[in-house]
Nucleic acid binder design. Sequence first.
RNA 1: GGCCCCAUCGUCUAACGGUUAGGAUCUACGGUUUUCAUCCGUAUUACAGGAGUUCAAAUCUCCUUGGGGUCACCA
Length: 462
Amino acid sequence: MVVTRFAPSPTGYLHIGGLRTALFSYLWAKKNKGKFFLRIEDTDKARNSVEAAEAIVNAFHWLGLTHDGEIIYQSSRDEIYAKYIQQLLDEGKAYYCYMSKEELSELRETQMAAKERTMYNGKYRDFDGTPPEGITPAIRIKAPQSGTITVKDGVKGDVIFNCLDILDDFIIARADGSPTYNFVVAVDDALMGVNEVIRGDDHLSNTPKQIVVYEALGFELPKFYHVPMIHNHEGKKLSKRDGATDVMAYKEMGYTPEALLNFLVRLGWSHGDQEIFSMEEMIELFNPKDINKSASIYNTDKLDWLSAHYLKNTPNCELAELLIQYDLILTSHDKKEILLDAIKERAKTLKEMALLAKEILETPSFYDEKAVKKAYKEDSASMLNAFSAKVSACAELHLPSDYHTLMEEVVSELGIGFGKIGQPLRIALLGKLSGPGLDSVMAIIGKDETILRITNVLAAHS
RNA sequence: GGCCCCAUCGUCUAACGGUUAGGAUCUACGGUUUUCAUCCGUAUUACAGGAGUUCAAAUCUCCUUGGGGUCACCA
Protein backbone atom coordinates (compact mmCIF):
# COMPACT_ATOMS: atom_id res chain seq x y z
CA MET A 1 0.00 0.00 0.00
CA VAL A 2 1.22 3.44 -0.89
CA VAL A 3 1.40 5.78 2.08
CA THR A 4 2.26 9.42 1.51
CA ARG A 5 2.15 12.49 3.66
CA PHE A 6 2.27 16.24 3.65
CA ALA A 7 4.34 17.59 6.52
CA PRO A 8 4.32 21.37 6.73
CA SER A 9 5.82 23.38 9.51
CA PRO A 10 3.21 25.75 10.88
CA THR A 11 5.10 28.98 10.50
CA GLY A 12 2.56 30.61 8.20
CA TYR A 13 -0.21 29.99 5.74
CA LEU A 14 -0.23 27.20 3.18
CA HIS A 15 1.55 28.44 0.12
CA ILE A 16 1.41 27.47 -3.53
CA GLY A 17 4.56 25.38 -3.51
CA GLY A 18 3.50 23.44 -0.46
CA LEU A 19 0.10 22.88 -1.95
CA ARG A 20 1.59 21.41 -5.07
CA THR A 21 3.63 18.79 -3.22
CA ALA A 22 0.60 18.10 -1.05
CA LEU A 23 -1.47 17.62 -4.20
CA PHE A 24 1.08 15.28 -5.73
CA SER A 25 1.21 13.24 -2.53
CA TYR A 26 -2.55 13.19 -2.32
CA LEU A 27 -3.01 12.09 -5.92
CA TRP A 28 -0.44 9.36 -5.69
CA ALA A 29 -1.99 7.94 -2.55
CA LYS A 30 -5.49 8.10 -4.03
CA LYS A 31 -4.41 6.55 -7.27
CA ASN A 32 -3.00 3.60 -5.40
CA LYS A 33 -5.89 3.45 -2.98
CA GLY A 34 -3.39 4.14 -0.26
CA LYS A 35 -3.22 6.65 2.57
CA PHE A 36 -2.42 10.32 2.63
CA PHE A 37 -1.48 11.69 6.03
CA LEU A 38 -1.10 15.19 7.33
CA ARG A 39 1.57 15.88 9.89
CA ILE A 40 2.32 19.21 11.47
CA GLU A 41 6.00 19.70 12.08
CA ASP A 42 5.98 21.86 15.14
CA THR A 43 9.02 20.72 17.06
CA ASP A 44 10.38 24.24 17.22
CA LYS A 45 8.26 25.69 19.95
CA ALA A 46 9.57 29.20 19.40
CA ARG A 47 8.44 29.48 15.80
CA ASN A 48 5.19 27.71 15.22
CA SER A 49 1.69 28.86 15.91
CA VAL A 50 -1.69 27.22 16.36
CA GLU A 51 -3.23 29.69 13.92
CA ALA A 52 -0.87 28.61 11.20
CA ALA A 53 -1.80 24.98 11.66
CA GLU A 54 -5.46 25.93 11.46
CA ALA A 55 -4.85 27.99 8.34
CA ILE A 56 -3.34 24.99 6.64
CA VAL A 57 -6.28 22.80 7.58
CA ASN A 58 -8.70 25.45 6.32
CA ALA A 59 -6.96 25.63 3.00
CA PHE A 60 -7.14 21.87 2.64
CA HIS A 61 -10.82 22.04 3.43
CA TRP A 62 -11.47 24.67 0.78
CA LEU A 63 -9.62 22.67 -1.83
CA GLY A 64 -11.38 19.47 -0.97
CA LEU A 65 -8.17 17.64 -0.20
CA THR A 66 -8.88 15.24 2.59
CA HIS A 67 -6.26 13.53 4.63
CA ASP A 68 -6.59 10.11 6.16
CA GLY A 69 -6.62 9.53 9.88
CA GLU A 70 -5.99 12.14 12.51
CA ILE A 71 -3.63 15.03 12.02
CA ILE A 72 -0.37 14.22 13.70
CA TYR A 73 1.32 16.95 15.69
CA GLN A 74 4.96 16.32 16.36
CA SER A 75 4.77 18.43 19.49
CA SER A 76 2.66 15.72 21.08
CA ARG A 77 5.05 12.91 20.34
CA ASP A 78 7.92 13.77 22.62
CA GLU A 79 7.86 10.43 24.44
CA ILE A 80 8.16 8.58 21.19
CA TYR A 81 11.18 10.54 20.10
CA ALA A 82 12.73 10.27 23.55
CA LYS A 83 12.41 6.53 23.36
CA TYR A 84 14.25 6.26 20.08
CA ILE A 85 16.88 8.74 21.15
CA GLN A 86 17.47 6.64 24.23
CA GLN A 87 17.72 3.57 22.07
CA LEU A 88 20.46 5.16 19.99
CA LEU A 89 22.23 6.29 23.15
CA ASP A 90 22.05 2.79 24.59
CA GLU A 91 23.36 1.25 21.42
CA GLY A 92 26.23 3.72 21.28
CA LYS A 93 24.93 5.18 18.02
CA ALA A 94 24.40 8.58 19.60
CA TYR A 95 26.14 10.49 22.36
CA TYR A 96 26.00 13.53 24.57
CA CYS A 97 27.88 16.54 23.31
CA TYR A 98 29.01 19.08 25.88
CA MET A 99 30.23 21.68 23.49
CA SER A 100 28.78 25.06 24.33
CA LYS A 101 27.25 27.27 21.68
CA GLU A 102 30.16 29.65 22.12
CA GLU A 103 32.69 26.93 21.64
CA LEU A 104 30.80 25.71 18.61
CA SER A 105 30.70 29.08 16.90
CA GLU A 106 34.37 29.53 17.69
CA LEU A 107 35.10 26.26 15.98
CA ARG A 108 33.07 27.38 13.02
CA GLU A 109 34.96 30.63 12.72
CA THR A 110 38.28 28.90 12.82
CA GLN A 111 37.18 26.56 10.08
CA MET A 112 35.88 29.39 7.98
CA ALA A 113 39.11 31.31 8.42
CA ALA A 114 41.00 28.24 7.24
CA LYS A 115 38.52 27.91 4.35
CA GLU A 116 37.54 24.49 5.56
CA ARG A 117 34.09 23.04 5.57
CA THR A 118 32.27 24.04 8.75
CA MET A 119 31.40 20.95 10.66
CA TYR A 120 31.35 19.51 14.13
CA ASN A 121 34.76 18.12 14.95
CA GLY A 122 33.58 15.05 16.82
CA LYS A 123 35.07 16.20 20.10
CA TYR A 124 32.68 14.19 22.25
CA ARG A 125 32.12 11.33 19.85
CA ASP A 126 34.18 8.93 21.91
CA PHE A 127 34.36 10.93 25.08
CA ASP A 128 34.51 9.00 28.34
CA GLY A 129 36.01 11.55 30.68
CA THR A 130 34.31 13.85 33.16
CA PRO A 131 31.84 16.18 31.45
CA PRO A 132 32.47 19.89 31.86
CA GLU A 133 30.49 21.70 34.55
CA GLY A 134 27.36 23.70 33.91
CA ILE A 135 26.60 22.48 30.45
CA THR A 136 23.43 20.67 29.52
CA PRO A 137 24.41 18.50 26.63
CA ALA A 138 22.82 18.14 23.24
CA ILE A 139 22.68 14.72 21.68
CA ARG A 140 24.47 13.93 18.45
CA ILE A 141 24.15 10.95 16.21
CA LYS A 142 27.22 9.11 14.99
CA ALA A 143 27.29 9.65 11.26
CA PRO A 144 29.50 7.69 8.91
CA GLN A 145 32.85 9.38 8.43
CA SER A 146 33.66 7.80 5.13
CA GLY A 147 31.98 6.18 2.19
CA THR A 148 28.97 7.38 0.27
CA ILE A 149 25.26 7.63 0.72
CA THR A 150 23.03 7.16 -2.28
CA VAL A 151 19.61 8.69 -2.43
CA LYS A 152 17.54 6.69 -4.87
CA ASP A 153 15.30 9.44 -6.08
CA GLY A 154 12.30 8.78 -8.29
CA VAL A 155 12.64 12.14 -9.98
CA LYS A 156 16.34 12.84 -10.03
CA GLY A 157 17.69 9.35 -10.28
CA ASP A 158 20.47 8.12 -8.00
CA VAL A 159 22.14 10.99 -6.20
CA ILE A 160 25.42 10.04 -4.59
CA PHE A 161 26.81 11.97 -1.68
CA ASN A 162 30.26 11.65 -0.25
CA CYS A 163 29.92 11.41 3.54
CA LEU A 164 33.08 13.37 4.04
CA ASP A 165 31.65 16.28 2.06
CA ILE A 166 28.31 16.63 3.70
CA LEU A 167 28.02 14.79 6.98
CA ASP A 168 29.05 15.39 10.53
CA ASP A 169 27.62 14.14 13.80
CA PHE A 170 24.55 16.30 13.65
CA ILE A 171 22.36 17.08 16.63
CA ILE A 172 19.26 14.96 17.04
CA ALA A 173 18.18 16.41 20.39
CA ARG A 174 18.72 19.94 21.62
CA ALA A 175 20.02 20.76 25.06
CA ASP A 176 16.42 21.17 26.22
CA GLY A 177 15.75 17.62 25.11
CA SER A 178 13.60 18.48 22.09
CA PRO A 179 14.40 16.49 18.97
CA THR A 180 15.45 18.15 15.72
CA TYR A 181 14.00 18.03 12.26
CA ASN A 182 16.08 15.44 10.46
CA PHE A 183 15.56 13.04 13.30
CA VAL A 184 11.81 13.40 13.77
CA VAL A 185 11.09 13.33 10.07
CA ALA A 186 12.74 9.99 9.71
CA VAL A 187 11.18 8.58 12.86
CA ASP A 188 7.67 9.79 12.04
CA ASP A 189 7.75 8.75 8.42
CA ALA A 190 8.91 5.31 9.44
CA LEU A 191 6.42 4.95 12.26
CA MET A 192 3.55 6.24 10.19
CA GLY A 193 4.39 3.73 7.51
CA VAL A 194 5.11 6.43 4.95
CA ASN A 195 6.80 4.60 2.12
CA GLU A 196 6.68 7.22 -0.62
CA VAL A 197 7.98 10.62 0.29
CA ILE A 198 7.12 13.36 -2.19
CA ARG A 199 8.55 16.70 -1.17
CA GLY A 200 10.39 19.77 -2.40
CA ASP A 201 13.74 19.73 -4.07
CA ASP A 202 15.16 21.80 -1.24
CA HIS A 203 15.06 18.69 0.95
CA LEU A 204 17.33 16.66 -1.25
CA SER A 205 20.45 17.63 0.62
CA ASN A 206 18.79 16.76 3.91
CA THR A 207 18.02 13.29 2.77
CA PRO A 208 21.40 11.70 3.51
CA LYS A 209 21.06 12.82 7.13
CA GLN A 210 17.66 11.23 7.33
CA ILE A 211 19.01 8.09 5.81
CA VAL A 212 21.59 8.02 8.59
CA VAL A 213 18.72 8.08 11.09
CA TYR A 214 16.73 5.43 9.25
CA GLU A 215 19.71 3.14 9.21
CA ALA A 216 20.71 3.74 12.82
CA LEU A 217 17.20 2.83 13.89
CA GLY A 218 16.92 -0.08 11.50
CA PHE A 219 13.96 1.35 9.62
CA GLU A 220 13.25 0.58 6.02
CA LEU A 221 13.89 3.45 3.62
CA PRO A 222 10.95 4.97 1.75
CA LYS A 223 10.99 5.91 -1.92
CA PHE A 224 11.91 9.52 -2.37
CA TYR A 225 10.65 11.92 -4.99
CA HIS A 226 12.18 15.36 -4.88
CA VAL A 227 9.99 17.73 -6.79
CA PRO A 228 11.68 20.74 -8.39
CA MET A 229 11.05 24.17 -6.97
CA ILE A 230 8.63 26.74 -8.20
CA HIS A 231 10.51 29.93 -8.85
CA ASN A 232 9.36 33.53 -8.93
CA HIS A 233 9.91 35.86 -11.87
CA GLU A 234 13.44 36.47 -10.73
CA GLY A 235 14.16 32.78 -10.87
CA LYS A 236 14.47 32.45 -7.11
CA LYS A 237 12.67 30.14 -4.75
CA LEU A 238 9.09 31.29 -4.36
CA SER A 239 8.70 33.05 -1.07
CA LYS A 240 6.18 35.01 0.89
CA ARG A 241 7.46 38.25 -0.57
CA ASP A 242 6.33 37.20 -4.00
CA GLY A 243 2.78 38.42 -3.64
CA ALA A 244 -0.02 35.92 -3.75
CA THR A 245 1.49 32.74 -2.47
CA ASP A 246 -1.14 32.19 0.21
CA VAL A 247 -3.49 29.60 -1.17
CA MET A 248 -6.48 31.27 0.43
CA ALA A 249 -5.71 34.50 -1.39
CA TYR A 250 -6.80 32.69 -4.53
CA LYS A 251 -10.17 32.09 -3.02
CA GLU A 252 -10.51 35.78 -2.32
CA MET A 253 -9.49 36.59 -5.86
CA GLY A 254 -12.33 34.42 -7.10
CA TYR A 255 -10.56 31.33 -8.31
CA THR A 256 -12.15 27.95 -7.78
CA PRO A 257 -10.34 24.95 -6.30
CA GLU A 258 -10.67 22.99 -9.53
CA ALA A 259 -8.93 25.74 -11.51
CA LEU A 260 -6.17 26.21 -8.97
CA LEU A 261 -5.54 22.49 -8.61
CA ASN A 262 -5.54 21.96 -12.37
CA PHE A 263 -3.08 24.82 -12.70
CA LEU A 264 -0.76 23.42 -10.07
CA VAL A 265 -0.80 19.85 -11.25
CA ARG A 266 0.60 21.01 -14.58
CA LEU A 267 3.45 22.82 -12.94
CA GLY A 268 6.24 20.30 -13.04
CA TRP A 269 4.08 17.45 -14.21
CA SER A 270 2.46 16.60 -17.49
CA HIS A 271 0.58 13.89 -19.26
CA GLY A 272 1.24 14.30 -22.96
CA ASP A 273 -0.56 17.31 -24.36
CA GLN A 274 -3.42 17.27 -21.90
CA GLU A 275 -4.14 20.55 -20.16
CA ILE A 276 -7.53 20.03 -18.55
CA PHE A 277 -7.72 17.56 -15.70
CA SER A 278 -10.68 16.87 -13.49
CA MET A 279 -9.85 15.56 -10.03
CA GLU A 280 -10.80 12.09 -11.22
CA GLU A 281 -8.44 12.34 -14.16
CA MET A 282 -5.64 13.65 -11.99
CA ILE A 283 -5.99 10.69 -9.69
CA GLU A 284 -6.23 8.33 -12.63
CA LEU A 285 -3.27 9.73 -14.54
CA PHE A 286 -0.85 11.10 -11.99
CA ASN A 287 2.42 9.30 -11.58
CA PRO A 288 5.49 10.78 -9.92
CA LYS A 289 7.68 9.24 -12.58
CA ASP A 290 6.33 11.90 -14.95
CA ILE A 291 7.44 14.74 -12.72
CA ASN A 292 9.79 17.11 -14.46
CA LYS A 293 13.37 17.51 -13.32
CA SER A 294 13.71 21.23 -13.74
CA ALA A 295 12.27 24.13 -11.80
CA SER A 296 9.39 26.12 -13.19
CA ILE A 297 8.57 29.77 -13.00
CA TYR A 298 5.39 30.89 -11.39
CA ASN A 299 3.22 32.66 -13.92
CA THR A 300 -0.54 32.85 -13.53
CA ASP A 301 -1.52 33.49 -17.16
CA LYS A 302 -2.57 29.92 -17.52
CA LEU A 303 -4.43 29.98 -14.24
CA ASP A 304 -6.63 32.74 -15.64
CA TRP A 305 -7.30 30.75 -18.74
CA LEU A 306 -8.13 27.62 -16.74
CA SER A 307 -10.32 29.58 -14.40
CA ALA A 308 -12.28 31.08 -17.30
CA HIS A 309 -12.56 27.64 -18.83
CA TYR A 310 -14.02 26.11 -15.71
CA LEU A 311 -16.39 29.00 -15.14
CA LYS A 312 -17.81 28.58 -18.62
CA ASN A 313 -18.41 24.93 -17.95
CA THR A 314 -19.92 25.23 -14.51
CA PRO A 315 -23.72 24.80 -14.27
CA ASN A 316 -25.54 27.99 -13.38
CA CYS A 317 -27.00 26.63 -10.18
CA GLU A 318 -23.51 25.94 -8.89
CA LEU A 319 -22.28 29.34 -9.96
CA ALA A 320 -25.15 31.02 -8.15
CA GLU A 321 -24.11 29.18 -4.99
CA LEU A 322 -20.47 30.12 -5.34
CA LEU A 323 -21.20 33.73 -6.10
CA ILE A 324 -22.82 34.27 -2.75
CA GLN A 325 -19.33 34.47 -1.29
CA TYR A 326 -18.63 37.37 -3.57
CA ASP A 327 -21.72 39.29 -2.48
CA LEU A 328 -23.87 38.42 -5.40
CA ILE A 329 -27.19 37.06 -4.24
CA LEU A 330 -29.25 35.81 -7.14
CA THR A 331 -31.33 33.16 -5.50
CA SER A 332 -34.61 34.99 -6.02
CA HIS A 333 -33.82 36.64 -9.33
CA ASP A 334 -36.23 35.28 -11.94
CA LYS A 335 -33.80 35.81 -14.83
CA LYS A 336 -30.71 34.41 -13.18
CA GLU A 337 -30.21 31.79 -15.87
CA ILE A 338 -30.02 34.44 -18.56
CA LEU A 339 -27.80 36.59 -16.41
CA LEU A 340 -25.37 33.82 -15.58
CA ASP A 341 -25.24 32.69 -19.19
CA ALA A 342 -24.46 36.25 -20.20
CA ILE A 343 -21.58 36.78 -17.80
CA LYS A 344 -19.94 33.37 -17.37
CA GLU A 345 -18.24 33.64 -20.74
CA ARG A 346 -16.73 37.01 -20.08
CA ALA A 347 -15.20 36.53 -16.64
CA LYS A 348 -11.95 35.00 -15.52
CA THR A 349 -12.91 34.70 -11.88
CA LEU A 350 -15.96 34.49 -9.70
CA LYS A 351 -15.14 37.89 -8.37
CA GLU A 352 -15.16 39.28 -11.87
CA MET A 353 -18.48 37.57 -12.50
CA ALA A 354 -20.00 39.25 -9.49
CA LEU A 355 -18.73 42.57 -10.73
CA LEU A 356 -20.13 42.04 -14.21
CA ALA A 357 -23.48 41.05 -12.77
CA LYS A 358 -23.65 44.22 -10.76
CA GLU A 359 -22.86 46.29 -13.81
CA ILE A 360 -25.94 44.83 -15.44
CA LEU A 361 -28.21 44.86 -12.43
CA GLU A 362 -27.49 48.37 -11.29
CA THR A 363 -28.83 51.41 -13.13
CA PRO A 364 -25.84 53.23 -14.63
CA SER A 365 -24.84 56.15 -12.47
CA PHE A 366 -22.62 57.66 -15.13
CA TYR A 367 -21.86 57.28 -18.81
CA ASP A 368 -18.43 56.60 -20.15
CA GLU A 369 -17.36 59.82 -21.86
CA LYS A 370 -15.41 58.23 -24.65
CA ALA A 371 -18.26 55.91 -25.41
CA VAL A 372 -20.74 58.77 -25.61
CA LYS A 373 -18.46 60.77 -27.82
CA LYS A 374 -17.94 57.86 -30.12
CA ALA A 375 -21.40 56.39 -30.38
CA TYR A 376 -24.03 58.80 -29.11
CA LYS A 377 -24.87 60.87 -32.17
CA GLU A 378 -27.43 63.54 -32.87
CA ASP A 379 -29.92 61.06 -34.25
CA SER A 380 -29.53 58.66 -31.35
CA ALA A 381 -32.22 60.27 -29.26
CA SER A 382 -34.92 59.82 -31.85
CA MET A 383 -34.02 56.18 -32.36
CA LEU A 384 -33.98 55.49 -28.66
CA ASN A 385 -37.34 57.19 -28.33
CA ALA A 386 -38.74 55.03 -31.06
CA PHE A 387 -37.44 51.92 -29.41
CA SER A 388 -38.59 52.96 -25.98
CA ALA A 389 -42.08 53.55 -27.34
CA LYS A 390 -42.13 50.05 -28.74
CA VAL A 391 -41.07 48.58 -25.45
CA SER A 392 -43.76 50.51 -23.58
CA ALA A 393 -46.39 49.40 -26.01
CA CYS A 394 -45.52 45.74 -25.68
CA ALA A 395 -47.34 43.95 -22.89
CA GLU A 396 -45.51 40.66 -22.77
CA LEU A 397 -41.74 40.92 -22.66
CA HIS A 398 -39.72 38.18 -21.03
CA LEU A 399 -37.10 36.52 -23.16
CA PRO A 400 -34.14 38.02 -24.98
CA SER A 401 -35.85 37.03 -28.20
CA ASP A 402 -38.84 39.23 -27.29
CA TYR A 403 -36.59 42.24 -27.11
CA HIS A 404 -34.69 41.17 -30.14
CA THR A 405 -37.88 41.17 -32.16
CA LEU A 406 -38.58 44.74 -31.11
CA MET A 407 -35.10 45.78 -32.11
CA GLU A 408 -35.52 44.18 -35.50
CA GLU A 409 -38.75 46.08 -36.00
CA VAL A 410 -37.18 49.41 -35.17
CA VAL A 411 -34.21 48.73 -37.34
CA SER A 412 -36.31 47.87 -40.36
CA GLU A 413 -38.81 50.67 -39.79
CA LEU A 414 -36.10 53.28 -39.58
CA GLY A 415 -34.08 51.67 -42.31
CA ILE A 416 -30.90 51.54 -40.26
CA GLY A 417 -28.35 48.92 -39.26
CA PHE A 418 -28.29 47.20 -35.89
CA GLY A 419 -25.17 49.04 -34.84
CA LYS A 420 -26.82 52.39 -35.33
CA ILE A 421 -29.26 51.84 -32.50
CA GLY A 422 -27.26 49.17 -30.69
CA GLN A 423 -24.46 51.45 -29.62
CA PRO A 424 -26.52 54.27 -28.09
CA LEU A 425 -28.82 51.72 -26.52
CA ARG A 426 -25.82 50.04 -24.99
CA ILE A 427 -24.75 53.33 -23.47
CA ALA A 428 -28.23 53.78 -22.08
CA LEU A 429 -28.35 50.32 -20.55
CA LEU A 430 -24.79 49.85 -19.35
CA GLY A 431 -23.15 53.26 -19.55
CA LYS A 432 -20.42 51.93 -21.84
CA LEU A 433 -19.83 50.19 -25.14
CA SER A 434 -18.98 46.68 -24.04
CA GLY A 435 -20.97 43.96 -22.40
CA PRO A 436 -23.38 41.12 -22.98
CA GLY A 437 -25.97 41.03 -25.73
CA LEU A 438 -28.48 43.86 -25.42
CA ASP A 439 -31.49 41.62 -25.72
CA SER A 440 -30.18 39.57 -22.79
CA VAL A 441 -29.51 42.65 -20.73
CA MET A 442 -33.01 43.93 -21.29
CA ALA A 443 -34.54 40.58 -20.53
CA ILE A 444 -32.60 40.49 -17.27
CA ILE A 445 -33.50 43.96 -16.06
CA GLY A 446 -37.04 43.89 -17.42
CA LYS A 447 -39.33 46.23 -19.24
CA ASP A 448 -39.64 49.04 -16.72
CA GLU A 449 -35.93 49.24 -16.00
CA THR A 450 -35.18 49.26 -19.72
CA ILE A 451 -37.48 52.23 -20.24
CA LEU A 452 -36.03 53.97 -17.21
CA ARG A 453 -32.47 53.59 -18.44
CA ILE A 454 -33.38 54.96 -21.85
CA THR A 455 -35.18 57.88 -20.25
CA ASN A 456 -32.11 58.52 -18.13
CA VAL A 457 -29.70 58.63 -20.99
CA LEU A 458 -31.99 60.89 -22.97
CA ALA A 459 -32.27 63.29 -20.07
CA ALA A 460 -28.53 63.32 -19.55
CA HIS A 461 -27.83 64.19 -23.17
CA SER A 462 -30.68 66.44 -24.22
C1' G B 1 33.07 28.95 -0.96
C1' G B 2 32.00 23.11 -0.34
C1' C B 3 28.28 19.70 -1.81
C1' C B 4 23.95 18.73 -4.78
C1' C B 5 20.30 19.65 -8.63
C1' C B 6 18.84 21.75 -13.26
C1' A B 7 19.09 23.70 -18.69
C1' U B 8 13.53 22.89 -25.42
C1' C B 9 9.38 29.02 -27.72
C1' G B 10 8.45 34.99 -22.91
C1' U B 11 5.75 31.15 -19.62
C1' C B 12 3.88 25.73 -18.72
C1' U B 13 5.47 21.57 -21.32
C1' A B 14 5.88 17.03 -25.40
C1' A B 15 9.96 14.31 -27.56
C1' C B 16 11.84 7.64 -24.31
C1' G B 17 18.88 8.22 -31.25
C1' G B 18 15.96 9.06 -37.05
C1' U B 19 9.83 14.48 -36.26
C1' U B 20 9.19 20.15 -41.24
C1' A B 21 11.16 19.93 -32.86
C1' G B 22 4.47 19.01 -31.21
C1' G B 23 0.63 21.11 -27.79
C1' A B 24 -1.07 24.93 -24.35
C1' U B 25 -0.75 29.90 -22.66
C1' C B 26 0.61 34.85 -23.83
C1' U B 27 1.01 38.48 -27.94
C1' A B 28 -0.52 40.07 -32.96
C1' C B 29 -3.77 39.65 -37.03
C1' G B 30 -8.21 37.65 -39.38
C1' G B 31 -13.29 35.23 -39.24
C1' U B 32 -17.99 34.80 -36.36
C1' U B 33 -20.80 38.55 -33.13
C1' U B 34 -25.13 45.10 -33.26
C1' U B 35 -20.37 45.91 -29.00
C1' C B 36 -17.21 43.23 -25.59
C1' A B 37 -16.19 38.39 -24.51
C1' U B 38 -16.57 33.38 -26.11
C1' C B 39 -15.55 30.32 -30.22
C1' C B 40 -12.71 29.30 -34.79
C1' G B 41 -8.41 30.24 -38.00
C1' U B 42 -3.42 32.19 -39.01
C1' A B 43 1.31 34.04 -37.53
C1' U B 44 5.89 35.28 -34.63
C1' U B 45 9.08 32.81 -30.97
C1' A B 46 12.87 27.42 -28.48
C1' C B 47 16.78 22.53 -28.39
C1' A B 48 22.59 27.73 -23.61
C1' G B 49 27.79 26.99 -25.91
C1' G B 50 31.76 23.58 -27.24
C1' A B 51 33.97 18.87 -27.88
C1' G B 52 33.17 13.77 -28.43
C1' U B 53 30.27 8.62 -29.27
C1' U B 54 27.16 7.20 -33.60
C1' C B 55 25.46 6.08 -40.34
C1' A B 56 22.28 9.43 -37.39
C1' A B 57 22.20 13.51 -31.15
C1' A B 58 17.37 18.14 -28.34
C1' U B 59 17.97 13.03 -26.71
C1' C B 60 24.17 9.39 -24.62
C1' U B 61 29.36 11.14 -22.44
C1' C B 62 32.64 15.08 -20.99
C1' C B 63 33.85 20.26 -20.47
C1' U B 64 32.32 25.39 -20.24
C1' U B 65 28.69 28.86 -19.11
C1' G B 66 24.30 30.12 -16.76
C1' G B 67 20.51 29.41 -13.03
C1' G B 68 18.81 27.23 -8.51
C1' G B 69 19.00 24.59 -3.80
C1' U B 70 21.55 23.43 0.65
C1' C B 71 25.27 23.81 4.25
C1' A B 72 21.91 25.57 12.37
C1' C B 73 20.85 23.22 19.33
C1' C B 74 15.09 26.19 11.78
C1' A B 75 11.80 23.12 9.42
